[in-house]
Design a protein around this nucleic acid. Structure first.
Lengths: 145, 145
DNA sequence: TTTAATGTCTCTAGCAACTAGAGGTTCAAG
DNA sequence: CTTGAACCTCTAGTTGCTAGAGACATTAAA
């Protein structure tokens, strides 16, 4: 059995985050030692690793909750999990496209900087002037991922 | 003079967001009508447009605050603004690299889905098994941008 | 001119996904 | 046996907004 600290180190998830995951029900309530400290077995370790990887892949905790409930009932169709992954891929590609546009814009801003005073500096100008902006704005520019 | 609603529509920033920007000092306190409603001139319009574009480019409100204070004193060197933009570009490229890795991973997850039951589904497995993961994890996987 | 609809006001509370800190208890090493 | 690290619970803070309540202002139509 691992203490929360060992689990934290092994899984690469911070201690307060583990407690937070328990609090919101992503992890089951941990067993306790005689002195009321949390103890974990390998099942929780796996679950936490799963969560970490999913987070790193950009899944929200809600999506992870869904995935976990899917994997808790493994006899269903794979389609639902597949669906989640596909939706995630769409979101990721969308985000990629916008980030690439952003990269281009920043490069342009930096290239245009006259290296004089700010009065001449295009970094400020580009941000203030829509005409110079060079990429389309839209309402979904900052989704939660 | 524009009401907050017109300003909102023209600048493409929601009404509560404008009030929020005023509250945190990104926008100056607005003039008021006889009936205590906010009124805006073109200076605030420009400032708000600047803020919106900077947000769309991924600048944090803190970075925007810096940029605004730079542009409020335009006789300084451009170097500071340039510096901000460059730091931003580094962050954006970092984020791009991680998103691309994520894209590959999701594609792989979807491709491996056996289209059977979840028991066989790699979507779950890939997330649970680090060995299959195929990309490096690191501590800065989810920065604030 | 009245009335209805819309817009605006302030204020509080909430969202994700944690992070930080206070103040106290338990555990493991020397 | 003591010390110091790790643990406990609890509250509150973070960023960048968004949503709602309940009241006042403004505008357009009837």
């Amino acid at each position: 059995m691992l203490t929360i600290g060992k689990l934290s180190k092994t899984a690469g998830v911070k201690v307060p985050t583990i407690r937070y995951y328990e609090e919101i029900g992503l992890l089951p309530e941990a067993e306790r030692s005689a002195g009321n400290q949390r103890l974990y077995g390998s099942a929780t370790m796996d679950r936490l690793t799963f969560i970490r990887h999913a987070r790193e892949l950009g899944f929200t905790l809600e999506a992870i909750r869904d995935l976990l409930s899917l994997s808790d009932t493994p006899d269903q169709s794979c389609a639902a999990a597949d669906q989640l992954a596909k939706a995630q891929l769409v979101a990721v590609r969308d985000r990629l496209a916008r980030l690439r546009a952003l990269e281009v814009e920043l490069e342009r801003m930096i290239a245009q900087c006259a290296h004089g005073t700010i009065a001449d500096c295009r970094v400020i100008e580009v941000l203030g002037n829509h005409d110079l902006c060079g990429h389309a704005h839209n309402a979904s520019d900052h989704p939660s991922l």
